[in-house]
Write a protein that binds this DNA or RNA. Structure first.
Lengths: 365, 365
DNA sequence: TTGTATGCGTTATCAT
DNA sequence: ATGATAACGCATACAA
C-alpha cells in the first residue's frame, strides 16, 4: 500500500507538503496542491489512521462496552449510538458479552489508544470496580449504572416511575389482585421495576404477599413457565405486570392457549414497547422505553465532554418511561386503540413519569 | 498516562526489556521480569494499541460495514460477528447506514490502519464499485453480495430455495391462489424471495398474473397497507407469502381486525423466523434464517483468510433457509405446533433447502 | 510556500 | 539477558 512518502515522491514534494494538502491545514500553492491530489489519486493513497491518531492524539472512534448484544433493547441502544456517531463522523469500536470485571478490563485495555472516549453499559452487579479503574483514563459515559459514580456522566431509564405508572393504571381500572412477573435477579432494570410495582401497591394499601411475585428472566420461555404457575395458583390474579414485553407476550400466548381471554379474564401489561407490541393480539399495553434515544444521547453526551464543554452539574440524566395504553388491559382510551403507526403516539398526552420527576425516581427510595 | 518509557524508568530497565516482558517474547531474568510487572501495575500502565499496531502491522480488530442496523436481522448478524470475534479476542469496528458508494468509501478509508480485515454487507444496488475499490487493500468477506466478485469470499442466505419451499408448502396444502407480499425494490433478498415464489408457481403451472403480487418494504406498516389491498381485491387469495415476518405479522393482525381467521379464511407464511414468530397467534409458519450464524461464519471465514489458510475454491457459501411449520397455514404437523422452546426444532427433520442444493440456488436462474 | 527534522508509543534488530 | 536505536506512518514546529 502506498504511504505518504510514495505520494510525496510521485508529486515531487516533501511529505510535509502532502500532509498539508490532504489535511488542508496550511496554505499551499495551487499548482503543487494539484500535483499532490493527482498523485494521491493515482496511487489510491489511503492515510493510515492508526499512525495519524498517534500524532494527533485523537481517533474519531468511540468505544462501546456492553454486557451483551442480545434482545431488541441492546441492539436499539447500539443503533442509537451508531446513528449519532455517524452524524458526527465517528465510528464505534464495540465489545460485548462481558460477564465479569476481568473481561471488561481486558476489553477496555485493548481499546486504549484507539478510542477518544468510552460508553460503558454496566447494568449488572460487580462492574462498579471496572468503572473506577477506567475512570480518569478516558472520557466516560455510563448507561444504566448500578450506582452513581462521582463526576461521571450517566444516562438511565426511568424504570421506577414507568413501572409505578403501569401498576397505577391497573389499579385505576379496578384491579385488586395484581401479580408481577419479575426480571432476572441482580439486574438493575428488573430491580427498579419491581420497586415501582411494590411502591404503587403499597401506596394503594395493597397486600405485598410474596405469592404475587413470580420469577422470570426477561426471556420468553420464563413467561410460559410463569403462566403455568400463575394459572396453578389457588387465587388467580386478575392482572399481571410483566417486567418486559417478551415475557408479557409469552404470557398472553400461554393464557390464550389455556382458554383464558386477555384482557377479559386477565389483564397483562408489559415494559419496553418493542416493535411488535402493537401487532400482537390484543395489542399490548406497555411502558415505552426509548432505547434508541438512550444510545443517541449517550454518544452526544460523550462528544460534549470531548469538546470540553461539559458542565459539572446534572451529570445524571434520566430518560422517561411512558405508559402506552393499548388493549391488553381492557382500557382502550379513545384514540389509542386504532393507532398502528409506529412510534407516533404523542408522549405528551399520556400519563407517566418524566425526567423532571427526579425525586421519586431516585434510587434506593 | 504512563507510557512504556515510564515503566522502564520505574523498573530501571530499558524500554526494550519492558516490551519483552509484557509480550513474553524473549527470555528475561526472573528478577527483572518481576520488577517490570510491579512497575507496570504500580503505574497502571496500558499499552497504546494504536502505536502497537503500527509496528506489528496487525490490530486484532475487524471492520464491519453495514447498510443499516435496523431490524432484527441486522442486529443478529452483528451479534453473530461479535460473538465469534470475542472467541478469538477480536473486536469489531462498526460503521453502518451507508446509502451510497461515496459514504461507504469514506467509512472504509477511515478504517485503514485500524483493522485487519473487513466484513462488508453490500446487499443493495450500486455498491459493487465499492467492493472493487476495497478489494486488494485488505482481506474482505462479503455478506449477501448482489453479484459474486472473483476471488472474494462471500456468504449469503438461501433465499431462493427458502421461498420456493414456503410456496411449495402452500401448494401442497391445496392452495390455488397464492399471493406474495414483496420486499423493497432493489433489495437482493427481496428479489431472490420473489424469484423463489415465481419459480414454485411456474413449476406448478400456476398463473403468474401481476395482480397477485403486492408491494411491501419489509416494515410493518406496509403489511397493513397490503392487507387492505388484498382484502379489497375482487378475487381474494387463499394464502399470502410475505417476504419477511414483520409484514406477515402485520398481515395477520390486519386480517384479524377485518374479521378474517388465519389460517381458516386465509393462510399466511413469513420469512426470517424472528424471535416472536412462534408467540403470536396463530404461531407463524415461516422460513428460518440463521442471521446469527451468518455473522459468526463471516467472521470465522475472515479469520481463516487472515491466517493464510484460505482455499481458493468454494469462495461462496450459502446458508440454508429452512421452512418451519407452525399454525398460520393450517398445517400443524405433529410435534411442531406445541413447540415453544426457542430455536429447538431439529432442522434435519424439516423440508427445505440446504446448502448442498447449490444448483437451484444459483442466482439469475 | 516549502522542506527538514522531531516526536507520537510501540516492536524489532542489532549489538553487547 | 539486556540496552541502544531504527523503523512504523504520519503531523507539525521550525528553518529556509
Amino acid at each position: 500500500m502506498a504511504t505518504i512518502r510514495d505520494v510525496a515522491e510521485a508529486a515531487s514534494v516533501s511529505i510535509a507538503t502532502v500532509s498539508r494538502v490532504l489535511n488542508k491545514k496550511a496554505r499551499v500553492s495551487e499548482e503543487t496542491a494539484r500535483r499532490v491530489w493527482t498523485a494521491a489519486a493515482e496511487l489510491d493513497y489511503w492515510p493510515n489512521e492508526a499512525a495519524r491518531s498517534l500524532t494527533t492524539n485523537q481517533t474519531h472512534v468511540i468505544g462501546v462496552l456492553l454486557p451483551d448484544l442480545h434482545g431488541e433493547f441492546f441492539s436499539e441502544v447500539i443503533r442509537g449510538i451508531d446513528q449519532a456517531a455517524r452524524e458526527s463522523r465517528y465510528q464505534i469500536l464495540v465489545s460485548s458479552s462481558h460477564a465479569d470485571h476481568d473481561e471488561v478490563m481486558t476489553a477496555a485495555k485493548s481499546m486504549q489508544g484507539r478510542i477518544d472516549g468510552l460508553i460503558f453499559m454496566a447494568s449488572d452487579n460487580g462492574l462498579a470496580e471496572s468503572v473506577d479503574r477506567i475512570q480518569g483514563r478516558m472520557p466516560l459515559v455510563l448507561i444504566n449504572p448500578r450506582r452513581i459514580v462521582k463526576g461521571t456522566a450517566s444516562l438511565r431509564i426511568g424504570n421506577f416511575l414507568g413501572a409505578r405508572e403501569a401498576v397505577n393504571h391497573l389499579l385505576r381500572l379496578g384491579h385488586e389482585d395484581i401479580a408481577i412477573l419479575k426480571g432476572p435477579a441482580g439486574n438493575i432494570d428488573a430491580e427498579e421495576r419491581l420497586r415501582g410495582y411494590r411502591h404503587a401497591l403499597a401506596a394503594a394499601d395493597r397486600d405485598l404477599g410474596a405469592s404475587r411475585e413470580f420469577q422470570g428472566d426477561f426471556l420468553e420461555p420464563s413467561g410460559y413457565r410463569a403462566a403455568a404457575e400463575i394459572l396453578g395458583s389457588r387465587r388467580r390474579p386478575t392482572a399481571v405486570f410483566a417486567c418486559n414485553d417478551m415475557m408479557a407476550i409469552a404470557l398472553i400466548s400461554a393464557f390464550g392457549g389455556a382458554g383464558l381471554k386477555v384482557p377479559e379474564d386477565i389483564a397483562v401489561v408489559g415494559f419496553d414497547d418493542v416493535a411488535i407490541a402493537r401487532y400482537i393480539h390484543p395489542p399490548l399495553t406497555t411502558v415505552r422505553v426509548e432505547a434508541n434515544q438512550l444510545g443517541q444521547r449517550a454518544l452526544r453526551r460523550l462528544l460534549a465532554i470531548l469538546s470540553g464543554g461539559e458542565a459539572e452539574g446534572a451529570v445524571e440524566e434520566v430518560l422517561p418511561a411512558t405508559l402506552v395504553v393499548r388493549e391488553s388491559c381492557g382500557a382502550s382510551l379513545a384514540g389509542y386503540s386504532t393507532d398502528y403507526s409506529r412510534r407516533k403516539e404523542s408522549p405528551g398526552s399520556m400519563p407517566g413519569g418524566t425526567a423532571r420527576d427526579s425525586d421519586p425516581e431516585a434510587r434506593g427510595d
